[in-house]
């Protein structure tokens, strides 16, 4: 019998190793798998390369992972946002690496990684400092730069409901990067608000088909990053 449901969060993330590349879902707090991130802090893996649109806020979730010095490099499009001080402080001291990627290029590189496409050309960033050092080509009257795929050892994502095959549905704009990250990671680990029976998810509505998912853990009432930040919480 196929059953991707894992009994405990520590078990689900136990094999994330030092030096791993980890995609973390979420656009700001929306879609951020905060319980999985906190478990990763407890687990202790370090020298991670983390791929996320942002760098977290306050001292919880992704910001806490960075603050606890587990992240060697961030690949993201927008590393500063409201209540975001941890990454900017470390970056200005030269203690963490940043690869800045336009948001759509970031998404497309992840999709390419999931689709087995090692490189592609895009008009985004042509003529800007973010195109420096990249191969340029001219197609049908326009300049394009070459971008490489992004793949990861692990993806940590959040969804609304999952079944034991790993089929996933999301909630509103919390979907953001999760479906493409699930395709681009060797091992995709999902926290779901609800674990449902096979057949309960409408096949027409499934946003991530189960073959992209490896492990599922039910977290019925996930914490909200903004609430923890407002309360001044630090993790751990």
């Amino acid at each position: 019998m196929i059953n991707k449901n894992i009994a405990s969060i520590p078990e689900a993330i136990a094999d994330i190793h030092d030096g791993a590349t980890v995609m973390v879902g979420g656009f700001g707090e929306t879609g951020s798998p905060i319980e999985l991130i906190h478990a990763l802090i407890d687990q202790g893996a370090k020298d991670l390369t983390v791929i996320n649109n942002n760098t977290g806020s306050g001292h919880v979730g992704l910001a806490a992972l960075i603050e606890n010095r587990r992240v060697a490099k961030m690949i993201c499009s927008y590393p500063r946002s409201a209540n975001s001080t941890v990454f900017p402080d470390l970056f200005s001291k030269g203690e963490i690496e940043l690869e800045l990627v336009p948001q759509g290029t970031l998404a497309e590189r992840i999709r390419a990684g999931g689709a087995g496409v090692p490189a592609f050309f895009t008009a985004t960033s042509v003529g800007t400092p973010l195109a420096d050092g990249k191969e340029e080509r001219h197609f049908e009257g326009r300049d394009y730069v070459m971008e490489r795929w992004l793949k990861a050892d692990f993806a940590l994502i959040k969804c609304k409901a999952a079944d034991r095959y790993g089929n996933l549905v999301y909630n509103k704009t919390a979907r953001n990067f999760a479906p493409i990250m699930a395709t681009a990671a060797a091992t995709t680990i999902v926290q779901t608000e609800k674990f449902v029976d096979l057949g309960d998810l409408d096949p027409e509505a499934v946003a991530t088909p189960g073959l992209f998912v490896d492990r599922i853990i039910e977290v019925p009432n996930p914490q909200l990053e903004s609430v923890l930040v407002k309360e001044g919480k630090h993790y751990p």
Binding site: F27, G28, E29, T30, G31, N53, S81, A82, Q103, G104, L106, A107, E108, I110, R111, Y170, N171, K172, T173, A174, R175, N176, F177, A178, P179, I180, A207, L224, S226
Partner: peptide
């Protein structure tokens, strides 16, 4: 709904006839 926001990370609503999609489709 904290899971319904815009690109500025502010809460918004969805009109009747709205659609959600992932980032690669959005871009």
């Amino acid at each position: 709904d904290p899971e319904l926001i815009n690109a500025g990370k502010k809460p918004v609503t969805a009109i009747p006839g709205a659609a959600y999609f992932h980032h690669a489709d959005s871009f």
